[in-house]
Every structure is written in C-alpha cells, then in structure tokens.
Write a protein that binds this DNA or RNA. Sequence first.
DNA 1: CACTGGAAAATGCCGC
DNA 2: GCGGCATTTTCCAGTG
Lengths: 80, 80, 80, 80
Amino acid sequence: MSDVDAKHLRAFIERIEKLEEEKKTIADDIKDVYAEAKGTGYDTKVMRKIVSLRKQDKDKRREEEEILDLYLAALGMLPG
Amino acid sequence: MSDVDAKHLRAFIERIEKLEEEKKTIADDIKDVYAEAKGTGYDTKVMRKIVSLRKQDKDKRREEEEILDLYLAALGMLPG
Amino acid sequence: MSDVDAKHLRAFIERIEKLEEEKKTIADDIKDVYAEAKGTGYDTKVMRKIVSLRKQDKDKRREEEEILDLYLAALGMLPG
Amino acid sequence: MSDVDAKHLRAFIERIEKLEEEKKTIADDIKDVYAEAKGTGYDTKVMRKIVSLRKQDKDKRREEEEILDLYLAALGMLPG
DNA sequence: CACTGGAAAATGCCGC
DNA sequence: GCGGCATTTTCCAGTG
C-alpha cells in the first residue's frame, strides 16, 4: 500500500472515529434523560416501552408507504 | 396521573426521541463513510476491525489512567 | 470435565443440532413457497413486504398488551 | 387482480406465515435448550462456538463431497 | 452479579 | 457478481 493510500485510509478511519464519538455522546445524553426521569419518579421500563411503541408506529407508517410504492409500480407496469 | 405529570412525561419522551433521531443520523453517516471507503476499494471488514482494535486501545489506556488516579488519590497525591 | 459431564454436554449439543436442522428445513420450505409464488406470477418483494407488515401488526399488538400489564402492575392492579 | 388471484395470493401468504410460526417455535426450543444447559452450569457462549465449528466442519465435508462428485462426473464415473 | 431485553454487528439471501 | 435488505448472532447496558 502506498503512502497516499495509507493517508487515505487513515482519513476514513478518523472520520469514522469522530462520528463514533459523537454517537456515544448522544447515547450518554439519552441515558442521562432516562436517569433524570427516573429521579423524578417515572418508571424507565414503561418509558422505554412507550418509546419503542412509538418508534414501531413510525417504522410501520414508513413501510406502508413503501409497499404503496411497490403496488403503484406494479400497476404502472401492467400492459393494460 | 395529573395533567402536569403527563406533560412532564411527554417532555421526557420527546427529548429522548429527538436524541434517538440524532443518533440515527450519525449512525447513517458512519454507514456512508464505510460505503464511500468501500467504493474507493477498501475492505470494510478490515476497517471495522481496525476501528474496533483502536477503540480497545483507547479504552485500555483510559482505564489505566483511572487506575493510576486511584493510586495517586490513595496516596493523597492528587490535586483534586 | 468428567465423562458424565462430557456425555451431558454432548447430549445438549446434539439436541441443538437436531433442532437447527429442523429449522433449516422449514426455512427451505419457506423459500420454496416464495419460489412457487414467483413461478405463478406474484412479485415476491411485495409478498415479503406484506408478510413483514402483518408480522409487525402482531408484534405491536403483543407489545401493547405488555405495556398494559406494566401500567396495571404500576397501579397495583395485577394479580401478580 | 381477480378474486381468484386474491385467494391464491392469500393462500401463499398464509402458508408462509404458518411456516414462519413453526420456525419461531423451533428457534424458541433452541433457546430453551441453551437455557437448560446454562442452568446446569455450561457456558452457552462456548456451546455456541462448538455448534458453529461443527457446522463449519459439516459444510466443509459436504462441499468436498460435491467437488468429488464433480470430478467423478467429469470422468464419466458417476452412476447417475 | 446473574439475567433479561434491546442495540449493534455480522452474515446470508434475494433481486437486478 | 454485487448491492441492498433481512435475518441472525453477538454484545452490552439496565434491572432485580
């Protein structure tokens, strides 16, 4: 591997590591919020379940749009 | 649960969801970097290994510093 | 490890391997059904999406029941 | 899509869902065996490794037999 | 501190 | 043959 390649690879690695750090920071922030909520008396287990259910709603809606696109594409490709 | 509580809980949930979204954005960015690296010919599996190893190094170093601090603290030699 | 232990472990491993085989058989059956459907003109991508959405429905319903239990438990209303 | 087609599609979907359920049942059975093994003191991580290695062996042996068959066929020495 | 449940990573599969 | 996608497996934090 040439020096140039090595530099290139190193740049990629460093970009990733920087992003990973940012991601970790946010993950810690999330933990903090749960901890704060717990500190004011909320049940984190319930909270996590709520967050999870709401996420499922979003995901499902997104997928329903996808399948609609699939249907439309299928209809657009019919000979008639 | 009173209205005030409900509002409070809702605020926590929304903070979490916002953070989760940010986290997802960054995770996607990381994927993009890997994809870009792959597009220029790098093996992402190897790259992931490198990132992982370097992370272990970092964690190890951090841990060693913590232990050192513990020793220093025990000896009453820490400025704090 | 004693001979008895070795036998015991071996028995566990073999039970697992047998089950894994059965699982693979069923996975292959599923593939066959998709292939058959494709052969009669259906779009497998659409089919997979349908199956996936219906599965989400089921999962979500199950989770909603779980969170209901959590609520009831929190209110001290669960016979547990 | 005609009613007949709809019925046909529905039948395919239901066959798949039934098989998926069976697959899930077996997957759960496997989990149970691991749990039982764990309960009697075995390290499931090690067990998983063993199962995985043995699977690789099996796959490798199968592949080698296939290659052998190819050779034999090329030489006109296969009974089929 | 062991266990469960959820996130992340790795693998395999399908369609193009 | 490859890229994207889904499944599976692995890992880790949170909980009791």
